[in-house]
Design a protein around this nucleic acid. Structure first.
Lengths: 110, 110
DNA sequence: TCCCTCTATCGTTTTATAACGATTATATCA
DNA sequence: TGATATAATCGTTATAAAACGATAGAGGGA
């Protein structure tokens, strides 16, 4: 799609990009699985998520490109773990956004 | 796309759906504009956002379907405002999700 | 009534997503 | 070296998303 993403403020772009990484239940579940196991390889995620290996790999790529997880090569497999710093930053980004919204609109209705 | 959304837990589906509503910078900006003005009509948003009227209307529909804003007919125009309850709920949903992730992965790397 | 304003919807085009099977590349192990 | 395991990538298909112009419909004023 021809998104006019460059016409918007950079902080909104960043938040939107990372929100998009969170916009699929499989990716949310993958994050939970990684968190639960602390670190794991792709195959373990495939066992827990009702999707084909190639699809899981694709979702992992999206999460990695959003900077939410890290993957390091470990022999024949790849070890995935969360990126705690990025997640904390994202959480703060969201909190700032909520603050902007909710401070100003205390309880207004229309 | 043939999303297997029904194969995932309902809370993950709900969070993913609302994250998707936040996954475009225009929609984030629209939320900010509404919050700033407390309530406003579509035309005011069109003035603030670099998109055509029909595109803004489409984004408003997405936000309304996600339950994040409300729109009531006001004469010839439509008055939009945030849904503070829904936004608070969404924020809590996110916070629960962050808690799940970050409690378990204190500072693990791979 | 006629015109004007406002916004939703329609139709269209372009691009992105989701999903899968099949293939490829890289390591480890025998 | 050859076989196996692991995961990324390729190719394909189907569907959704983003954007716009044009149109339609509903109200309010002259």
């Amino acid at each position: 799609m021809r998104t006019k993403a460059n016409h918007f403020a950079t902080d909104l772009n960043k938040l939107a990009t990372q929100a998009k990484a969170l916009s699929h239940p499989a990716r949310l579940q993958i994050l939970q699985v990684i968190a639960q196991k602390e670190r794991c390889i792709c195959g373990e995620i495939v066992d827990d998520v009702p999707l084909a290996q190639s699809t899981v790999s694709q979702h992992l790529k999206v999460l990695k490109e959003a900077g939410l997880i890290q993957g390091t090569i470990d022999g024949p497999s790849v070890c995935y773990c969360l990126d705690p710093v990025a997640l904390r930053l994202l959480r703060e980004r969201f909190d700032t956004f909520w603050g902007d919204l909710i401070d100003e609109s205390s309880a207004t209705t229309c």
